[in-house]
């Protein structure tokens, strides 16, 4: 088997420095620190010196990282590996409407990690999708990690593309690479990273493989050392394009500095009441102002509304 996932020093990131249409990378390649004991779960997460699992200690964080992904792709495994917590991993769509939170320290920065409910989409109206969507939109995490199942790439990319419409600061964790290998699938993660315009890191979270690279990618995107160029959907029918462009211009005029005016336009055209309400109340305006702390608190009040049958 090739060194797709095995070589801990080969990440999608350092390959991207040479990619013609990749993103600007101003970071040194990773030191080959963990090469000796990649399989050992404790040390494979880079060096003990670099990662400190903080458990539920989330005080004085510098960056907020959201974990998104389809159900059962190993999101909670990644969460547990980074925070040292033991979040229960059973996940049923529609049942999990809460977020788990934990902390870790890496490369001198403290991170708060938020595990969002697993969803297939951010477009529909179910409660779990709303919680995930609201956090990515209103909570404005500094980085959103989308964990994807490498054996079901196509289905998982639907969510990635939707996340990329909302936020630029995305890292894709290409998880379950061991299963992909067993299915004799070869995945060109570099090409994937180029197509998506964001870092793609192959991982095997169950064995801790690829997590050092994932941490580095998170830190690079969080600190702005990597500027991503996220892929945006361009193949909508022409009639839609026109409508989206018109509305996007208006939204940009009303809320200068809004990072995802186009996505807001998409949702308004779909008749999304929650987003319409946010526009009406000027909540969107807050997204370009205010501290991350405030934003995070405003999200607390959004989550887990009861859903009565009329």
């Amino acid at each position: 088997m090739s060194s797709q996932t095995d070589g801990p020093t080969v990440t999608a990131l350092d390959q991207l420095t040479t990619a013609d249409d990749g993103f600007t990378v101003t970071v040194e390649p990773l030191p080959a620190a963990a090469a000796g004991c990649a399989a050992c779960p404790v040390h494979s997460v880079h060096n003990a010196a670099n990662l400190r699992k903080l458990g539920i200690d989330m005080t004085d964080w510098d960056f907020v990282v959201a974990l998104a992904g389809n159900p059962n792709v190993g999101k909670s495994t990644v969460f547990n590996a980074l925070t040292g917590l033991r979040q229960h991993t059973g996940n049923w769509p529609g049942k999990t409407v809460t977020r788990a939170e934990g902390g870790f320290e890496y490369g001198g920065h403290r991170y708060k990690l938020v595990d969002l409910p697993g969803t297939y989409s951010l477009l529909a109206t179910s409660l779990d999708e709303e919680v995930a969507r609201d956090f990515i939109l209103f909570g404005q995490p500094d980085v959103t990690v989308v964990v994807v199942d490498a054996t079901r790439l196509e289905r998982n990319l639907n969510l990635v593309l939707q996340v990329l419409e909302i936020t630029d600061r995305v890292v894709v964790a290409l998880n379950l690479m061991d299963e992909a290998r067993r299915h004799r699938l070869q995945i060109d993660h570099r090409r994937l990273a180029r197509d998506l315009g964001v870092p793609v890191v192959p991982t095997e979270a169950r064995r801790g493989k690829g997590l050092p690279e994932l941490l580095q990618a998170i830190s690079d995107v969080a600190t702005g050392r990597i500027v991503t160029r996220p892929h945006r959907i361009k193949n909508e029918p022409p009639a839609l394009k026109q409508a989206i462009a018109t509305l996007t211009r208006q939204i940009e005029a009303a809320f200068p500095g809004l990072p995802n005016a186009r996505w807001v336009a998409l949702r308004l055209l779909d008749g999304d009441e929650r987003i319409a309400e946010a526009v009406r109340l000027g909540e969107l305006g807050d997204l370009s102002r205010g501290s991350a702390e405030e934003r995070s608190q405003s999200v607390q009040s959004l989550s887990a509304k009861p859903e009565p049958v009329p």
Binding site: E154, R155, N158, L185, I187, D188, P237, L240
Partner: peptide, 19 residues
């Protein structure tokens, strides 16, 4: 139409990356 656009795009990207 929007869902279809996303699905088509996801299929295209996945197809390019997976062999």
């Amino acid at each position: 139409a929007l869902m279809e656009a996303i699905y088509t795009e996801a299929a295209r990207i996945a197809d390019r990356a997976v062999t």
